[in-house]
Write a protein that binds this DNA or RNA. Sequence first.
DNA 1: GTCTATATTAAGATAGAC
DNA 2: GTCTATCTTAATATAGAC
Lengths: 205, 205
Amino acid sequence: MRLTTKDKILDVAEALFAEHGFNDTSLRTITSKAGVNLASVNYHFGDKKTLVRAVLNRYLEAFMPAVQDALITLNLNHTYTMSDVFESLREPLRALGDIRPNGTSRFMLLIGRGYTDVQGHLRWFITTRYQETLSLFTQSVLKANPNLTQETLFWRLHFTLGTCVFTMASSQALMEIAENDYEKQMDAKYIVDQLIPYLAAGVAA
Amino acid sequence: MRLTTKDKILDVAEALFAEHGFNDTSLRTITSKAGVNLASVNYHFGDKKTLVRAVLNRYLEAFMPAVQDALITLNLNHTYTMSDVFESLREPLRALGDIRPNGTSRFMLLIGRGYTDVQGHLRWFITTRYQETLSLFTQSVLKANPNLTQETLFWRLHFTLGTCVFTMASSQALMEIAENDYEKQMDAKYIVDQLIPYLAAGVAA
DNA sequence: GTCTATATTAAGATAGAC
DNA sequence: GTCTATCTTAATATAGAC
């Protein structure tokens, strides 16, 4: 057998959580689709909350250090633009596609679910464990446009998160429509290309 | 007795749906908090899906015609800016606060929940019933910036929808965080003030 | 580690008396 | 229209054999 039970659970849970949300994905659905026993979730993870965190953490532990590195490199410059800040996210996001098929959109979906589902424990987990990187990002945005107040910045970054989450959630449908209408091959990279200037413009406005 | 059983159910359901989402609010919680019998939901509304649509429709039937009117008025002008288009949404949104206390944020929350919870029936209900208004909005955006290609417009309007939906869905949590951090009283009007320039900048970029 | 079987809780919905 | 009582289903979680 190629995959351990633990990994089978993680892979299937990830797909289902991304598609239906955490609360609307039952352990029964996960285990039956993964071809493992219902009780194995509790054996390997203890409870559902811990499974949720484990799924998200496979991405976070790849993504966050990559962002951290990119931002540190960016900050070797004395000045930079808002576009430069958002460009720093491009490669770390793309690289998630190397970890797992559709890794980029999966990750963005899961993050969004963590905010919109009732998952206080998840928000707490992310912001406390990766506080250093998150605050380096905000500092960089602020350095790119020092006229932004802390408060305006707070709101615009959340708007940005919303844009990403929703886009990735509907990316499959959107790409199909766009491919039909504009007869052009679409992929996750293409969407990110459309996204980055839009986000930079909104945040810098 | 001032309120009918039906209205008591609608009022309580609205508050609970907005706060906890549709799937995480049980009929038992609604009826006990409303002081009515559990079976009365099924008597008056048939099932939970219909109750959900009834709650949202009290707002939609006020909001959509107001947007329609505002856009028709806007289009009496030969030219207008992207800001003008998004400004057209401001008064219809504000006016929801006259229908019911906190009407604006309630409505925004419910719409957001309709997109992020698994509520396909709700998305279908909105887009089919109010298609005319929705398409008038797209036409107006295009008139505000005729340089946008169909393709760019396509993507940016979806980004915009994502920003709105996500913001609405998490507005309660965001307001609480912001109130703590910036010691300022937040309300729906304040969020709309933050949102409109961000959206206009991103779409026009 | 994995399985069956089951405990426990809570949900939506309805039947039928009043 | 309203109520009690109940049906049916499905969720998380765990005990205990293998």
